[in-house]
């Protein structure tokens, strides 16, 4: 068995690869490092980096994917954030939005709060949980050569996708997005709906 490829991935390189040529994809990022990661790759109106609502990211993705069925919606979040919203995996699996993908950047730690260990550090298997919930499409990404297939699977739009990528538990320099949530919401709505967004009744 090859071992050279099984080092944990660099989370920003992973984000950069997954978001390359993203088209009109909409991205929701869980609070903390995933929000800094998508911002480091490039802040834009089609990004919603979260500042709070721990456990909400996947369900925000569900509401958005139902509202915008022709766009790919990608949720990028941390293992800690996903563990707080495990029930949403059942909710999403039942609803089966074809255009929603969830990517957990699993560093097996709560990075933002000082690198305390999460349950995944002790073997809790998020992919198995998602499969058990009913996700037909799941991926476990542990090496660089699996990143391109991951990117393809995200864009495929063939039913909800749940992927876990094992990433390095390094604390990277903060790259902060705008902090005003009203602005973050309004800019994405305008990007999706045009100027009409601000006159919706």
């Amino acid at each position: 068995m090859a071992t050279a490829n099984t080092r944990a991935l660099d989370r920003r390189e992973l984000c950069r690869a997954v978001l390359a040529d993203r088209g009109d994809m909409l991205v929701v990022a869980g609070l903390g490092a995933p929000a800094w990661d998508i911002t480091a790759v490039g802040d834009c109106p089609e990004n919603l980096p979260l500042w709070g609502g721990m456990g909400a990211a996947a369900m925000i993705g569900l509401g958005l994917s139902i509202a915008q069925p022709r766009r790919t919606v990608l949720v990028i979040t941390g293992d800690g954030e996903m563990l707080m919203g495990l029930g949403s995996l059942a909710t999403i699996a039942v609803k089966r939005p074809p255009n929603l993908a969830i990517l957990v950047q699993d560093n097996e730690h709560y990075g933002e709060t000082g690198m305390q260990e999460t349950a995944t550090r002790y073997g809790v298997d998020l992919v198995a949980i998602a499969r058990g919930a009913g996700f037909a499409r799941t991926m476990l990404v542990t090496s660089a050569d699996q990143v391109a297939p991951l990117r393809e699977a995200i864009h495929a739009g063939a039913g909800p996708l749940f992927a876990v990528a094992k990433v390095d538990a390094a604390s990277l320099p903060l790259v902060l997005p705008p902090r005003d949530g009203a602005y973050l919401q309004a800019r994405m709505r305008e990007a999706v709906l045009g100027p009409e967004a601000h006159h919706q009744l």
Binding site: G53, L62, G63, G85, R189
Partner: peptide
């Protein structure tokens, strides 16, 4: 959408509104 817990609904309403 039948939720597993009500807080999921708050998150879903944000997602819905983001998409119009």
């Amino acid at each position: 959408v039948t939720l597993t817990t009500e807080e999921e609904g708050i998150a879903m309403l944000l997602g819905a509104w983001l998409g119009g």
